[in-house]
Design a protein around this nucleic acid. Structure first.
Length: 324
DNA sequence: AACCGTGCCAACCGCACAGGG
DNA sequence: CCCCTGTGCGGTTGGCACGGT
């Protein structure tokens, strides 16, 4: 059964999204929530295929996304999870609530794979122990649940030597959300609530190196007219937030000018509205101080929160040696 | 200063699965 | 039970920016 591509219609725009398109899409999602992507292009007038809209939302516009500058711990987490789960980026992404699978995949392909290859051709670069191949989704989820428990224990082992791992007490909220995102699948709108305007926190902005990121101030700019033609051109040097090398500059104090909220009420409400649909709340201000705290908390939390799959034996998950 | 090679990342493509009719 | 449509996922690509020569 050969289905025609969804985007082969004429008049369907491809390529980079413009701020105006983003605004339209976000406005629509504010109103209707994510989902029913088929209807999005027709109802918004966007000359994009539904798939493109969904992708744009999930990979870029969705609230709570942290961009760029993977931390050391995130790196290790990804490497370890990749070894455990294989190239199941969506599953891996569920352990990193602020990262998209696309982001992780890109990071793996551009950074980690190379590091592992050049660093040590030992255990870390061996193919994953098991691959999903073609299991049904139900099986896959059960597998994932099993993986989660395996991963938790394995990661505890892997990360403990890092030394500075102590579950911060105030992170219960993260933990809950992180777990929710894992247990409830990626995009269950109902799983959100709370966390208020977590989406577009200033610090999230400060670390965002993208061409422009849908942050409060960006929405504000959009709503204010956004006369300037911001585009990908600025993504490294002039984009919102610190470019590429953000890690060095993203200690929270950088780019204070970018954090000017201007008070655009519309943007604030927009952000608030968006946060309603947030599935992986960011709370980025705290995150910035405590990177990966959600994961840490989650890892170190008592396994008893998971009611199932306790009998999994951690057979051959040994702490790994990372070449970096 | 110009050119070239490389890195990076957003977006696209195609396949597979799930659910509704 | 079958077919069709919508959605999710992983692999791949196009194009821009940067760094080196």
């Amino acid at each position: 059964m050969v289905r025609p591509p969804c985007c082969d219609k004429e008049g369907v725009k491809k390529g980079p999204w413009t701020p105006e398109e983003d605004l339209i899409l976000v406005s629509y999602i504010q109103e209707h929530g994510p989902g029913n992507w088929r209807a999005v292009p027709t109802r918004t007038g966007l000359m994009r295929c539904s798939k493109s809209c969904r992708l744009r939302w999930t990979n870029y516009l969705r609230p709570g996304i942290k961009r760029g500058n993977f931390t050391d711990q995130e790196e290790k987490l990804i490497v370890h999870l990749q070894a455990l789960l294989g190239n199941r980026w969506a599953a891996i992404a569920s352990y990193l609530p602020e990262r998209t699978d696309n982001d992780i995949k890109n990071y793996w392909n551009t950074h980690l794979k190379r590091k592992l290859q050049s660093g040590a051709d030992g255990a870390a670069s061996k193919p994953p122990a098991h691959r999903p191949a073609s299991s049904s989704k139900g099986q896959w989820e059960r597998r994932l649940q099993t993986d989660i428990n395996m991963a938790r224990r394995a990661l505890r082992e892997a990360l403990t030597p890092l030394g500075d791992l102590k579950p911060p007490p105030q992170q219960q909220h993260h933990e809950a959300t992180a777990r929710a995102s894992i247990a409830g699948g990626e995009d269950s709108p109902a799983a959100s609530s709370s966390s208020g305007a977590s989406l577009c926190s200033p610090s999230a902005t400060a670390t965002a190196p993208g061409p422009y990121v849908l942050t409060t101030e960006n929405i504000s700019r959009m709503l204010d007219g956004w006369a300037g033609s911001s585009s990908r051109k600025g993504r490294r040097a002039t984009g919102p937030g610190t470019p590429g090398g953000g890690e060095s500059a993203s200690t929270g104090s950088s780019d204070a000018s970018e954090v000017s909220y201007g008070g655009a009420a519309a943007s604030a409400s927009a952000a608030a509205a968006i946060s309603e649909y947030e599935t992986k709340p960011a709370v980025a201000a705290q995150q910035q101080q405590m990177p990966l705290s959600a994961i840490e908390s989650w890892l170190f939390d008592d396994d008893s929160h998971f009611h199932q799959v306790q009998s999994v034996s951690l057979l051959d998950v040994a702490p790994m040696d990372y070449p970096f």
